[in-house]
Amino acid sequence: MLAYIIRRIIQSIIVLLAVGFVAFAMFNFVGDPVDNMLGQERTQADIERLREQLGLDKPFIVQYWHFLEQAAQGNFGLSYRQGRPVADIISERLPATLELAFVSGLLALFGGIALGIFTAIRRRGISANVIMTLSLIGVSLPTFLIGVILIYVFSVELGWLPSFGRGEVVDIGGWSTGFLTVSGLKAMVLPAITLGLYQMTLIMRLVRTEMLEVLRMDYIRFARARGLREKSINFRHALKNTLVPVITITGLQLGSIIAFAIITETVFQWPGVGLLFINAVQFVDIPIMAAYLMMISVMFVGINLIVDMLYFAIDPRLRVDRSSGGH
């Protein structure tokens, strides 16, 4: 198992180096940072000094190494537009995105698993078929449209929930949270549903398919032949086996929630890193774009790694050494 984990970690590092290279390349090939940073009135000396300051006069590979070194410490330099450290800007914005992703992730995971089980167990029932049909619509509608529809119904027509922003936030040791105020919680509802709906339908359909597959297995039949109750067969025998393959995909889905947050944050003007990124793209604010890219890939790789370990925890067949299996 240790060898496996080490191999996975090495793979992760390679992925991050590659993404790092793309991020780094943006600095060099998309516009000239010196141009961007200095105003209209600049002298050749200013340019030279800044180039030296930024290390742009060094060989390419040295610059790349320097970039990685700094990136590993969370240092992506100054935002071209705001002139403040990127790390500061991102850490101000991160709580908003993480809280949104967390709530939609929970919604997607628990909603998806519950609905998946329900539609699998009651696969002939009317309500299960209605849910399946609705889920098809849910999958095919683009996220922004769902967001706009929700805003129209619940903000414009009914006036129950705010259509944009985070509501009031409370600052706890540098982390701004919307969980502690009523307006913060209300503001969370629509964006979380918008962001989580697509993932929820995916997870639901996956769980359903997987569960139906498992329910056809011999060991389920044998469990029935031993007179176990349906409840135990569905939730103890079938569900656990369903979750093994579901975990991998679900894990990646949850990772992608943070990336997908860009659209939701734009629709709801949610002050998170996704909105920050969209604004950065408009102003070609390369350091922020690079930092965002790195951050997202670290999350993806990290989630992937955790998912693999969960896999180990759930499936005993993977836990033993190959050599001692059977006898």
């Binding site: 297995m217 011999d218 060991y219 032949a225 007179g227 656990k240 086996n241 005993p316």
Partner: peptide, 18 residues
Amino acid sequence: GKTMGMIFQDPLTSLNPL
């Protein structure tokens, strides 16, 4: 299970692996 039991063909798939 209590008064009548059944054994299937394939022992590899008759037991819950988890």
